[in-house]
């Protein structure tokens, strides 16, 4: 069905444009999630149900939750509660809610009319994706696992360095007043820490 594709595409483009023009990060995240859901619907209509499921689970689920965690971490404090209530006024979530309702209507229409959404000949089932993934692309899968391990170690290292900086700041041996000196120097941070521990 072509019009399902067009509606989802228009929703995706509109939500992305709204995301780009928001001032507030949480509002932009709401529109970005709607945009990713719309792209998932586009995938489904195109005959790629496995990619659609991955888009919803990993992109709109995991990665967006990471973003929301960071936004909430950046706003800790006594004003966080009133900020949160100010962020979620009905005028804010009305736009994403309308767009998401359009997508939900499309999904309900697809599910309620079997065989209407995509023609079976054009659909690429997950079995073929899995066979290709662990057949000719086996080396690439291993490389992707190496990349994820690198990302894990990198994120852990950055977070750990942050904790060392906070420890030195609370112990009073931190000289990073203007925030522009070499406080991020790994060697110095480590030596500070070991010196403080000793």
């Amino acid at each position: 069905m072509d019009w399902l594709f067009y509606i989802a595409g228009v929703v995706a483009v509109g939500a992305t444009l709204m995301m780009l023009t928001r001032q507030n990060a949480v509002h932009a995240l709401l529109y970005l999630i709607v945009s990713l859901l719309a792209v998932a619907v586009v995938f489904f209509v195109l005959g790629a149900p496995f990619a659609a499921a991955l888009e919803v689970i990993i992109y709109a689920g995991a990665i967006m939750v990471l973003f929301i965690f960071v936004v909430m971490l950046l706003n800790v404090g006594p004003r966080a509660g009133e900020l949160e209530s100010a962020w979620l006024t009905p005028t804010v979530w009305a736009g994403p809610a309308v767009l998401a309702a359009i997508l939900a209507g499309e999904i309900v229409y697809i599910l309620s009319s079997p065989g209407l959404g995509i023609e079976p000949a054009a659909e690429i089932p997950p079995e073929r994706v899995g066979l290709a993934l662990y057949g000719p692309y086996l080396v690439a899968v291993e490389l992707a696992s190496m990349l994820l391990l690198g990302g894990l170690v990198g994120a852990y290292h950055l977070g750990r360095e942050d904790r060392v900086r906070l420890e030195t700041a609370t112990h009073g041996v931190h000289t990073d007043v203007a925030g522009s000196d070499s406080g991020g120097d790994l060697v110095r941070a480590g030596s500070d820490r070991t010196a403080g521990a000793a």
Partner: peptide
């Protein structure tokens, strides 16, 4: 062909690694 979805899975892995490191850098 199924290769498009395979590449999408790889792009997903790259995006996940990128956003983990990027958000740690944002916090720093």
């Amino acid at each position: 062909q199924a290769d498009g979805q395979v590449m999408f899975i790889f792009i997903l892995a790259v995006a996940a690694a990128e956003v983990a490191v990027g958000l740690a850098l944002v916090l720093l």
